[in-house]
Nucleic acid binder design. Structure first.
Length: 658
RNA sequence: GCCGGGGUGGCCUAGCUGGUGGGGCGUCAGACUCAUAAUCUGAAGGCCGCGGGUUCGAACCCCGCCCCCGGCACCA
């Protein structure tokens, strides 16, 4: 039986960032492990190329959508290649085969009675001369009166808005007043799939984060789904020249059309996967669970295709503990911030796989990156492999011909078992931890047996220890190959392992006694300076995006250190020799204080008398122009000039401000 | 508000059906020198979010509360 693994399609509207890789790298790792386990796997993905954002983005750049998607299609392909993410086929949803397959499926759904038409009001922009998707409509929320977006009141009450509900609709692109026009659209009878989906989701495999959400959604009401759009760009809706199908229809169909393309090239039959019994595993981000667990299976069921067997959803990525946000600068671009900076692809692969469970949020920070790479990859793993190979090469020149001890065979077997179990439950961190644990054991074994002493005292024993360690190196190479293919290939070349056709059982096949050439270090350390440079680059970007929250937060505890009280100004006079400063006397309830304040540019002394103002009472005393100040009066700063803050009504002096 | 997931030493995490809280990284101290100042050994460090309850006994079960993340659908 064949297994198909897919990844959520990247939208061909912008460059690849680390969030994309959070899904693609574990998927690639998974596929490589499956192959080592002897499974017949096809791995496909492709660019998602339709939808309004691409049309608008292309317009803004003065190009056609086709030109735009070509740029990003090529970009993603390149990045995947550089990151060792090896799809068997990487297509595009704008390829002929996908247009064809999409129309085929929509027609089948129509034939089977799952599609009906209905007339609905839609916002239309007379200037752009087109219907506007809800997110491109702005106006007033009918519930709270705040400025809102067409699909939800994002700044006000947060309510979801139905098409046609928003008041005073305007086009977001040119600000023109939009009007509502009646329009015929096509709907998919999702509601009729409720019972089917409830049963289907019982047995669907994958990660809990995805399955729980989907089950919850289905238990609630399922509404029919509008699957047509007023656009030129996309897959033509069958029988309608003026409309295309909604991108969320043709995007997942890409999984099928890419399989078809792959089949055409390799001579296999795509229907073995999509029409007969097979394993179909979708790797996606948490944001598109709904589409993959609900719309997509319903569509496949309605059109008579094989249903997915598992949906594996990765958690979100955070950047230095902050929510990932391209617009706010919390992003790591794979090309500009990683590859062009000269970092090895395997380092990031390891980080993304090993930081935490696949389902949980992953925090990326350059500091953690440095720690993980230098401690785990370089020191523990790389150093073990290198010290063993180097020792062997220097003292023997070749791999000794003694059999591996049973203790070591047992240890390797344990690691292999753990890896397989973890992979089967989509726990990639667990799998890579199990391998790293073996490397750690290797270091300890080497250390305790002191082969550098045995070489002088007991040559036979020394050969045994070294052979054991070499077998561990071989096991590590195989078990880590899926995570770090290019680095492990290099080690494989040294010790005579062909990484193109690995079997996981090979970890127990004794390493062949070949002659060694001088080994080189498998992983190079990352310099502290480089990390600092990267951190600064990130901070600069965040600040450029107009972010103020690079500032440190104050905790309530911090704030409570400040003793702020309302005081009454009871005396005020100028300070000799100063144009700005006034010497004030204030009553803060139980005592009177002398405070020097820079109010002279805005106020005459006499107009301050009697005012109730907030005062930071526990400000460290200081002398200004030789006059002691025992507190600080808070005021608004308007272009450098102070404006008094007053209480809204008369309050007792000494009242606490908090 | 409702729903889902989570809250275990500075960080990442084990902990299945209840029986004296483990590991890794980091920190500190020793050891060693084959190796990329690597490695090995040892130590310090935890009111297992908070408050009740069930029990001979709870991180694990029940109730209440707090906090974090996500979802609540037509956003590709």
């Amino acid at each position: 039986m064949k297994t198909l693994v897919t990844c959520g399609l990247p939208y061909a509207n912008g460059p690849c960032h680390i969030g994309h890789l959070r899904t693609y790298i574990p998927a690639d790792v998974y596929v490589r492990y499956l192959r080592m386990l002897g499974k017949d796997v096809v791995f496909v993905c492709g660019s998602d190329t339709h939808g309004t954002p691409i049309v608008i983005n292309a317009e803004e750049r003065n190009m056609t959508p086709k030109e735009l998607i070509k740029i990003y299609h090529r970009h993603f392909k390149e990045i995947f290649e550089k990151m060792s993410i090896e799809f068997d086929y990487y297509g595009s949803t704008d390829d002929y085969s996908n247009h064809h397959r999409t129309q085929e499926i929509v027609l089948e759904l129509i034939r089977n009675g799952y599609v009906y038409s209905k007339t609905i009001p839609l916002a239309y922009c007379p200037v752009c001369d087109r219907f506007l998707p809800d997110r491109y409509v702005e106006g007033t929320c009918p519930y709270c009166g705040m400025e809102a977006r067409g699909d939800e009141c994002d700044q006000g009450c947060g309510r979801h808005l139905e098409p046609g509900e928003i008041l005073n609709p305007r086009c977001k692109i040119d600000g023109a007043k939009a009007e509502y026009r009646e329009q015929e659209h096509y709907f998919f009878r999702l509601s009729s799939f409720k019972e089917f989906l409830l049963r289907y989701l019982e047995d669907l495999k994958g990660t809990e984060n995805a399955l729980n959400y989907a089950r919850e959604w289905v238990k609630r009401e399922l509404k029919d789904w509008c699957i047509s759009r007023n656009l030129d760009w996309g897959v033509k809706f069958p029988g309608r020249d003026d409309m295309v199908v909604y991108v969320w229809v043709d995007a997942p169909i890409g999984y099928i059309s890419f399989t078809e393309e792959y089949a055409k090239r390799t001579g296999i039959n795509w229907e073995e996967i999509w029409k007969e019994k097979s394993e179909i595993v979708h790797f996606i981000g948490l944001d598109i669970v709904y589409h993959h667990c609900i719309f997509w299976p319903a569509m496949l069921k309605g059109a008579g295709y094989t249903l997915p067997s598992a949906v594996v959803a990765s958690g979100m990525v955070k950047i230095q503990d902050k929510t990932f946000s391209k617009s706010r600068g919390y992003v790591v671009w794979v090309e500009d911030d990683y590859l062009k900076e000269g970092f090895h692809p395997d380092y990031l692969r390891y980080y993304l796989v090993n930081y935490t469970s696949h389902q949980k949020d992953l925090n990326f920070s350059w500091k953690i990156f440095e720690d993980k790479v230098n401690n785990e990859l370089v020191n523990t793993l790389g150093n073990f492999m290198y010290r063993v190979l180097h020792f062997t090469w220097k003292n023997f020149g070749r791999i000794p011909e003694v059999s591996v001890s049973s203790e070591i065979i047992k240890k390797i077997e344990e690691a292999r078992k753990n890896v397989i179990e973890s992979i089967e439950s989509y726990e990639f961190k667990e799998a890579s931890d199990a391998v790293m644990e073996l490397a750690s054991f290797g270091n300890s074994y080497f250390q305790h047996n002191k082969p550098w002493e045995l070489i002088k005292s007991n040559l036979e024993k020394c050969q045994q220890v070294i052979k054991d360690c070499l077998q561990i190196v071989k096991a590590l190479t195989i078990l880590f190959y899926p995570v770090m293919p290019s680095s492990m290939k290099e080690i494989g070349d040294i010790i005579g392992i062909d990484t193109t056709s690995l079997k996981i059982e090979d970890v127990q096949v004794e390493i062949s006694p070949l002659k060694l050439s001088r080994p080189s270090v498998p992983f190079k350390k990352i310099e502290k300076e480089k990390i600092i440079e990267m951190q600064e680059k990130l901070i600069r970007r965040i600040e450029k995006m107009g972010n103020t929250d690079t500032q440190e937060y104050v905790t309530l505890e911090d704030f409570q250190k400040m003793n702020i009280r309302i005081g009454k100004i009871i005396a005020a006079e100028r300070i000799k020799g100063s144009s700005k400063l006034l010497k004030l006397e204030v009553d803060i309830g139980d005592e009177k204080r002398q405070i020097v304040a820079g109010f002279a540019t805005s106020y005459r002394p006499e107009e301050l008398i009697g005012e109730l103002v907030p005062i930071l009472v526990n400000m460290k005393p200081a002398k200004l122009m030789g006059v002691e100040s025992q507190g600080m009066i808070l005021a608004a700063d308007v272009n450098g000039k102070p404006v008094l803050l007053k209480t809204e009504k008369e309050v007792p002096t000494g009242s606490i401000v908090r």
